[in-house]
């Protein structure tokens, strides 16, 4: 199969993820969408690695996975503590930093 098709899929996944981040209010869903975008990038990296015939893309994909794992830990912790404090997981409720 033509590796370019993987790129199309990656773009599609990324767009779905981005739209979810921008549109959804639930913090958990937003978080999942961020993960979706990260994995879309991973897919693109692997596809590029295949297209160019070297391993750089795969290595970066590994890095991304590690970073994503770390991010999940910190992010979920923040969401849980926000939910505990405000009894809501809506991102719009947490708007205290505006002027």
């Amino acid at each position: 199969m033509n590796p370019v098709n993987y790129l199309y899929l990656a773009a599609l996944l990324f767009t779905i993820g981005a739209a979810g981040v921008l549109i959804r209010r639930n913090a958990i869903v937003v978080f999942m969408c961020v993960e979706l975008m990260l994995n879309a990038c991973n897919l693109a990296f692997v596809a590029f690695s295949r297209m160019h015939g070297n391993l750089d893309g795969q290595i970066i994909a590994f890095f991304t996975m590690v970073v994503a794992a770390a991010e999940v830990v910190v992010g979920l912790a923040i969401i849980v503590s926000v939910f505990r404090a405000r009894h809501s997981a809506s991102v719009d409720d947490a708007s205290l930093m505006k002027l």
Partner: peptide, 17 residues
């Protein structure tokens, strides 16, 4: 311009995007 700083993380995300 100040009105853009509305505190909603999503709208910041939109502008970044």
């Amino acid at each position: 311009l100040r009105k853009l700083q509305n505190g909603y993380a999503r709208s910041y995300a939109v502008s970044m995007f």
